[in-house]
């Protein structure tokens, strides 16, 4: 009896809480964000999940939309990953691409931020501008530059440099012939260069918020640049490193724009130059037979993997510890 009553009360409590929230100022401020999340995030996910349980093909929605195949798309996907020799490379490539590019992005951004911190003001700002260029250049133009740089014929910049130096005698088709290292190197290089600036900006602004007295104090005590970096800057940037790593990892997991162009233009090998996100895109939009159900299933799994990796990253890198325990009781 008592239990029922209390259960009732919590239910109506929750209900009135929601009602209160809807009538509060906070709700008005959050409304635009809530609408955006619903329109651009929740609806697409719901649609994808739905699609992943249908045999939808070639955008023939009218015909397939009411057919359900259960988890068949998911089983097919797992089977392909484990058995299809053309799909497996894509997953190895995705893992290698994310790990190496992530390391380049985070360490490069950190290194640049710290290096520019110890530079004079003028050198620092021109260095930073230089590293922002890849980000500021339109994707097509930027990809074009590297297309010509790594081009497999003698007109490729890299080839002509190496040939004029006498290091090689015949042009090398970097993206197609040295499998898998050639295509990997190219997609990692091209994306790594773009991603570095993000970490650089975040870390630079974080460093500029460190009281300069901390660094001066260490200098007076005789600390070298390296020991200031190791003992003061990096520990104080811990939170930002976690943040940039997580953010960059998730965006690498879902990025495909540069890679799409490089594959499309034939610069890199189709299998060892394609990542999971691009694979989904191709399956849904460019393949001869557009297997949308399968693409949706692969996409849903990608979202789940992304969410898990995000949580894992925050956990491993100690998100909880970063939030300081309150001083004494509050």
């Amino acid at each position: 009896m008592t239990r029922e009553v209390s259960g009732d009360m919590t239910k109506s409590n929750l209900f009135s809480k929601i009602k209160d929230f809807i009538h509060s100022d906070a709700f008005i401020f959050l409304l635009p964000a809530i609408i955006l999340i619903i329109v651009f995030y929740l609806i697409p996910i719901v649609v994808s999940v739905y699609m992943s349980f249908t045999p939808l093909k070639n955008w023939n929605i009218a015909r397939y939309i009411h057919e359900f195949v259960g988890f068949e798309n998911y089983w097919r996907f797992f089977y392909m990953v484990t058995h299809d020799p053309t799909v497996r490379p894509i997953f190895i490539t995705t893992v290698v691409f994310i790990l190496v590019t992530l390391a380049i992005n985070v360490l490069g951004g950190l290194g640049l931020a710290i290096a520019t911190f110890f530079m004079g003001e003028r050198e620092a700002s021109s260095t930073q501008l230089l590293w922002l260029l890849p980000r500021m250049t339109p994707i097509a133009v930027y990809s074009m530059i590297w297309y010509y740089f790594f081009h497999g014929s003698a007109i490729g910049t890299l080839n002509s440099i190496l040939m004029s130096l006498g290091i090689i005698h015949k042009p090398i088709d970097w993206g197609q012939s040295i499998i898998p290292w050639g295509p990997w190197m190219i997609i990692i290089f091209v994306n790594g260069l773009v991603g570095v600036s993000y970490g650089m900006i975040v870390f630079t602004s974080a460093i500029s918020n460190i009281p300069k007295e901390l660094v001066i104090a260490a200098r007076v005590d005789g600390a070298s640049n390296w020991s200031i970096t190791k003992n003061i800057l990096i520990p104080l940037l811990k939170w930002h490193i976690v943040y940039v790593t997580t953010w960059q990892m998730l965006s690498l997991l879902t990025t495909y724009d540069h890679i799409f162009l490089l594959v499309e233009w034939g610069l890199v090998n189709r299998y060892y130059g394609t990542t999971w996100a691009l694979y989904i895109y191709n399956m849904a939009f460019t393949a001869a037979e557009k297997d949308l159900g399968l693409a949706a299933a692969a996409g849903v799994i990608l979202v789940i993997v992304g969410a898990l990796l995000g949580l894992l990253a925050l956990k491993i890198l100690g998100f909880e510890k970063m939030v300081k325990e309150p001083r004494g009781d509050i």
Partner: peptide, 13 residues
């Protein structure tokens, strides 16, 4: 030299 700052500049970590 030993230097003490106005904001003390203790290493927070």
């Amino acid at each position: 030299i030993g230097l003490v700052f106005q904001n003390w500049a203790l290493y927070p970590h």
